[in-house]
Design a protein around this nucleic acid. Structure first.
Length: 554
RNA sequence: GCGCCUGUAGCUCAGCUGGAUAGAGCAACGGACUUCUAAUCCGUAGGCCGGGGGUUCGACUCCCUCCAGGCGCGCCA
């Protein structure tokens, strides 16, 4: 509907220019918005105001010229008027709205999809938690955001690939191996003071037991590199399997699990470093190799190969990101925890130094999550050895509530996740508010069937009976869904879908309480059944984007 | 000290990349179930958009500055 108004304005402007009424053909981008106040019509544009400068004319005068060109030859538009400093307000004919319902019903699960992305290849990487322990709530937020952004981009015609990067190399993993080894020896009765830098969590114990069971007690008595490496690999494997399991339970699967170690094994890290050397952006100093990231806006240069010859984490990350682009992705999106924001400049440098544009690399910085129970903070952190895992949260509050809550906030703002609130089935916890709409409509449809309604089919004549204010409001909201989706894709903002759904749900509940769908008049009943069926589809589609289920009953 | 994020109703947050009189939920108060699910709805009340400057027809939105909170500033990952 909005597109129609945009066309109307642009056409009028062109005609006005051709007839000489407007001197310039330097038109601003047509921006059509939906005014907050009904008094300002269904749609409004500031086109005339923005044209004031290029046309060297008063905004209201330009508006009048455009109006003259529009005539009133469009049956969807009832009235056009000039208001305030030069807004042009459009009032639509009430009959313009009902056909939207038909469109929703026809497009069904593809309603809201678009070709915005034109098949652009995007890689999105998220979670990528180190395999040194189970996932916590912070990872859950990143997972919910990443997966939802993936869904949005996919729906908007991008070719998206989602990936989990496994940090299965480096010192951290060795530390994990040592932790397992020491735990194993403790299990065998040895008195060992557990070192500060090792992982104290309970999840290490079963892994240690498993090593003892498969390799025997003698194996773990030797603390040599081979033994540690074995323990590390075994632990990482087990933990990754657990992570994968938790994510699946959270409704998330990846197209690819990408191993850091594989970058070393295939020589890609070395290759990436050679590339940087060839491009003369690395230099040797103090026995280490430095990447001149300051050339690309970083505040200091960064080490890629340490004095001791070992590469840094940054080095493999460079290799990984180069690899992403080499695989043909035109855009790369990383979802990181806010505590990693300091790495953006150097990663951007790495992308740019290798010849890609900096705007091809985007980082979604997800702010931290504070876990609460009844308003009181729950102790977190791996070092404390005891923490609430993502799995605990899913088990306690449910997958749908958890995912929805993670997306009820812009990811740029910090989130308090209160377990008590998440369990409550009140409006403090709007997931049920939205799901309830779906269930309610399902119930109406069941009831209709019981009453002998064979099918729900759109018919224009009957559709014209949708004239109640609440019905028009609902249809307008349905009409807006594709735009919300596109704006969510453009700004990578899944929470817009969440808020849209809450608003749509509110409109439906208001309608439901005021009007009956199943009436004595069969054509009116048909029209209303079509309307609510359309609402149900949009709710289902939207919840699907968020990774939340749409129940038939509650 | 420097960088990033945040600051909007008592609380939790939106505000559609600069639009008209700043919105929603919770909490408070008052109402609505013989009806398709009351996990719902209707109404009332609630504001110096952290402070101060600037940009312009117009600023919660953009720029500068100050204040407050969170996070980050390793040859760690």
């Amino acid at each position: 509907m909005k597109a129609l108004i945009e066309q109307l304005i642009l056409t009028a402007a062109r005609k006005a220019h051709q007839s000489g009424a407007l001197p310039s053909d330097d038109f601003p981008a047509v921006v059509v918005e939906e005014p907050k106040s009904d008094a300002h019509g269904d749609f409004a544009t500031n086109f005339a105001m923005l044209s004031a400068k290029p046309q060297k004319m008063a905004p209201r005068k330009i508006a009048q010229i455009l109006l003259d060109q529009m005539e009133n030859n469009h049956d969807q538009v009832a009235k056009v008027e000039i208001a305030g400093p030069g807004f042009i307000n459009f009032f639509l004919n009430p009959t313009a709205w009902p056909p939207v319902v038909r469109q929703v019903l026809e497009q069904d699960e593809t309603y809201g999809h678009s070709q915005l992305g034109r098949g652009q290849k995007i890689q999105i990487e998220f979670v990528s938690a180190n395999p040194t322990g189970p996932l916590h709530v912070g990872h859950g937020r990143g997972a919910a955001v990443g997966d939802s952004v993936f869904n949005i981009l996919k729906a908007c015609g991008y070719q998206v690939h989602k990936e989990y990067y496994i940090n299965d190399s480096g010192r951290q993993i060795q530390t994990l191996g040592r932790s397992v080894l020491l735990r194993a020896r403790q299990l065998l009765g040895e008195e060992i003071v557990f070192p500060e830098d090792c992982y104290p969590g309970d999840y290490v114990k079963p892994i240690a037991q498993q090593v003892i069971d498969t390799k025997g007690a003698d194996f773990v008595r030797h603390e040599d590199d081979a033994t540690i490496t074995y323990c590390a690999r075994a632990a990482a494997q087990t933990i990754i399997a657990g992570i994968r399991d938790d994510l699946e339970r959270f409704g998330i699967t990846f197209d690819e699990w990408f191993s850091e170690q594989s970058l070393y094994d295939s020589g890609r890290v070395e290759q990436a470093l050679e590339d940087l050397k060839a491009r003369q952006v690395v230099y040797a100093q103090d026995g280490a190799w430095w990447f001149r990231t300051t050339d690309y806006g970083d505040e200091k240069d960064r080490v890629v190969v340490r004095q001791n010859g070992q590469t840094t984490y940054f080095a493999s990350d460079i290799a990984y990101h180069h690899n992403k682009f080499q695989r043909g992705f035109e855009r790369v999106i990383d979802v990181w925890g806010a505590d990693h924001h300091g790495y953006i400049p150097r990663m951007t440098a790495a992308v740019e130094a290798a010849g890609w544009r900096r705007d091809q690399f985007q980082v979604i910085l997800v702010q931290l999550v504070a876990l609460l129970r009844g308003g009181q903070p729950v102790a977190m952190g791996k070092r404390s050895g005891e923490f609430v895992t993502l799995r605990d949260v899913i088990d306690e509050v449910g997958r749908d509530a958890a995912r929805f809550i993670f997306l009820t906030r812009d990811y740029e703002s910090p989130l308090d996740f209160d377990l008590e609130v998440a369990k409550q089935q009140t409006n403090d916890n709007p997931v049920y508010y939205v799901q309830y709409v779906h269930a309610r409509i399902a119930s109406i449809l069941r009831k209709a069937q019981e009453q002998g309604v064979k099918e729900v089919r759109w018919q224009a004549a009957a559709g014209a009976r949708l004239t109640e204010t609440e019905e028009i409001n609902l249809i307008k909201a349905l009409d807006r869904y594709p735009q919300v989706m596109e704006s969510a894709a453009q700004t990578l903002a899944p929470h817009r879908i969440t808020f849209y759904l809450m608003q749509l749900a509110g409109l439906f509940h208001a309608y439901y309480n005021k009007h009956r769908v199943l009436t004595e008049q069969s054509d009116l009943t048909q029209a209303r059944l079509c309307l609510v069926a359309a609402v149900q589809k949009v709710i289902r589609n939207g919840l699907g984007i968020l990774g939340v289920g749409a129940p038939e009953q509650m």
